[in-house]
């Protein structure tokens, strides 16, 4: 039983991070219909900025998180302005290729500055808590609390503020939103900033129990895509639920089936789902 609970906890940790990354991806997709392949690279840059702030500048963990969030949000907006905005009327294949270009560039730059070595990011929260037979590293609790806290904050932002409401309106109906006179540029920039910030904070939370290296975003971005396809591209609750599903599937599958192949689980799930239902699980019928 304890072993099972332990896996549930792992699943929750993974799932909350996946959800956070997928949220940014799904927001961007909802607004611009761009599958941003560079999102994983933004996540990676976030981890490096946090690492750099902590190790080289000697600042504390929370400041590092803020720095990472700010830098990556800015970078993300830059991508929108310089790349995706000029391509908004281009055939869909073009912005996918451009996103790949950004991804390659960011990875190469990071690798040039910091090398390809695997690094371990320090954290001030090294305690290990015990509840009954359960061992819980404090960082994991922080991840879960941080991720869900951020999701809650995002929810409030989208529901309670004007900009948030316009983001939702535009995600649901772009043409309509234009008619109502929404400043599409501002909304797009805001969305990219939020997505970048989520990715960077997610990276700062997750990196201490993982490793930091230039290719760290590859697997994650692919899983995030699986998640938003599962949850319906553009759907916010879908990204969170999908993230948890994949997180749990991986934790439990990795433990009970095969640890070697645990990374395949998400993709196998995707292949099965899309084979049966080509438009994903929770998509709305109307195009």
């Amino acid at each position: 039983m304890d072993l099972f609970l332990q896996q549930v906890l792992n699943g929750l940790t993974l799932g909350s991070i996946y959800g956070l990354i997928a949220l940014g991806l799904t927001l961007v997709y909802g607004i611009l219909h761009v599958p941003n392949f560079a999102h994983g690279a933004l996540y990676m840059v976030g981890a490096y900025v946090a690492y750099f702030t902590m190790v080289d500048l000697g600042l504390n963990y929370w400041l590092a998180m803020i720095a990472a969030g700010a830098v990556v949000a800015f970078l993300s907006v830059l991508c929108e302005r310089l790349v995706f905005h000029p391509l908004r009327h281009a055939p869909p294949i073009h912005d996918k290729i451009a996103a790949i270009g950004i991804l390659l560039f960011l990875e190469a730059v990071v690798q040039m500055y910091w090398g390809a070595d695997f690094r371990r990011m320090p954290t001030p929260y090294n305690e290990i808590l015990h509840f009954g037979g359960l061992t819980i590293p404090a960082q994991r609790l922080l991840i879960i609390a941080g991720a869900f806290g951020l999701m809650g904050a995002l929810h409030l932002y989208l529901k309670k503020t004007m900009t948030g409401a316009t983001i939702i309106a535009m995600a649901q109906n772009r043409e309509g939103a234009f008619l109502v006179g929404i400043d599409a540029n501002r909304v797009a920039m805001m969305t990219f900033a939020i997505a970048g910030m989520l990715a960077a904070v997610g990276a700062t939370l997750f990196a201490p129990i993982n490793l930091v290296y230039p290719a760290m975003g590859h697997l994650l971005i692919m899983k995030a895509f699986v998640i938003i396809i599962l949850g319906g591209m553009g759907s916010i609750p879908g990204a969170i639920v999908g993230g948890l599903i994949i997180g749990f599937a991986e934790a439990l599958g990795g433990f009970y089936i095969s640890n070697e192949y645990k990374d395949v689980i998400a993709f196998a799930l995707l292949v099965v789902i899309l084979s049966v239902k080509p438009t994903g699980l929770f998509t709305k019928g109307v195009r």
Binding site: H33, M222, V226, V264, L274
Partner: peptide, 28 residues
């Protein structure tokens, strides 16, 4: 036969995953 039923983005993402599965299988 499986992937080409998917449109645009879905196809690209699906094949990205297929490529990764091939990589993982070759390694594992």
């Amino acid at each position: 036969v499986v992937s080409l039923r998917l449109k645009e983005h879905y196809f690209a993402i699906f094949t990205l995953c297929v490529g990764f599965i091939i990589y993982l299988l070759l390694e594992k």
